[in-house]
């Protein structure tokens, strides 16, 4: 491809992404006739349902991140340390959520854990929250696992483990004080991606009837004109902030240049 053609392709690509975003952002500012204003944003932010659903989704995101870290870090560590041959299998399993639609999993949950089952999780709000958490953890699994596994690849897991053991450390100390701090940037990358996924997730929350931010956005979209655009801009801003934080954390890490 010649240089001008490459530029044309780049500009076309950028326009493809930017024009709808720009259009949406511009539309979200036109609630007041004739002038640009932040009325739509004010209306959204003042909506008590926004605060409630957003708060719920933030809480779910935080818990999902915690569960994800507790599940993924020891697994990825153990696979690298003791079962390197199983790595492709585990990677394949963690990628499954990308090919199995969330709606299939949600229906599976509802069928397995309905009120007539041996574990009627859908019968109570708490139980449904647990199912939602499981669903979110699974949705975030490909991102969390890849991020942590990449982080582990950059440290000499085996030698650091052996060094810790020879200094008297048990598994808890090794994971908590040696492995986790050395993959903290990777864990945070996974955490921010998880946060972005959970905040915008619709299928699980809607089917399990939980008061999350995704279904709220959909409801607002049914009833109003300008507010949905404002909400979409807010959602994008959250995602971008997460991406920015990944970059910021990576850059400010004191020992990122350190090898094993």
């Amino acid at each position: 491809m010649t240089r001008p053609a490459a530029w044309v392709a780049l500009v076309l690509g950028l326009l493809y992404f930017v024009i709808p975003l720009w259009g949406m952002a511009e539309f979200s500012l036109r609630m007041r006739r004739g002038v640009y204003s932040l009325d739509a944003y004010g209306s959204v932010l003042a909506n008590p349902e926004f605060q409630r659903t957003f708060g719920f989704s933030v809480l779910m995101a935080v818990v999902t991140i915690l569960v994800g870290v507790l599940l993924v870090v020891p697994t990825a560590y153990w696979v690298r340390l003791r079962m390197p041959r199983l790595r492709p299998v585990v990677e394949f399993i963690t990628l499954l959520p990308l090919v199995i639609p969330a709606i299939v999993i949600a229906f599976g949950y509802i069928r397995l854990y309905n009120t007539g089952s041996w574990l009627p999780l859908t019968g109570t709000a708490g139980g449904a929250n647990v199912l939602l958490l499981m669903g979110y953890t699974m949705l975030a699994l490909p991102y969390m696992y890849r991020a942590v596994d990449t982080g582990l690849a950059s440290v000499d897991v085996r030698t650091l483990t052996e060094a810790s053991q020879s200094l008297g450390a048990g598994w808890g100390t090794i994971l908590g004080r040696v492995i986790l701090p050395n993959v903290v940037v990777a864990v945070l990358s996974g955490a921010f991606l998880t946060f972005a996924i959970v905040i915008g997730e619709f299928t699980f929350a809607a089917l399990l009837d939980r008061p999350a931010f995704g279904p709220f956005m959909q409801r607002v979209g049914e009833d109003s004109a300008y507010e949905p655009s404002a909400l979409a801009v807010i959602a994008f801003a959250i995602t971008w902030a997460c991406m920015g934080l990944i970059g910021l954390v990576t850059r400010t890490q004191k020992h990122t240049r350190a090898g094993a």
Binding site: A163, S164, Q165, N182, V184, A258, G259
Partner: peptide, 29 residues
């Protein structure tokens, strides 16, 4: 187990903990 033997080891690749300072490394055990 290795952590019960009280045997010190130095590795070819140093194996210092990158997240700890020199003092943190030396004081780890």
């Amino acid at each position: 187990r290795p952590n019960q033997r009280n045997i010190g080891m130095v590795f070819q690749s140093y194996a210092l903990f990158p997240n700890l300072t020199v003092a943190g490394n030396v004081g780890f055990g």
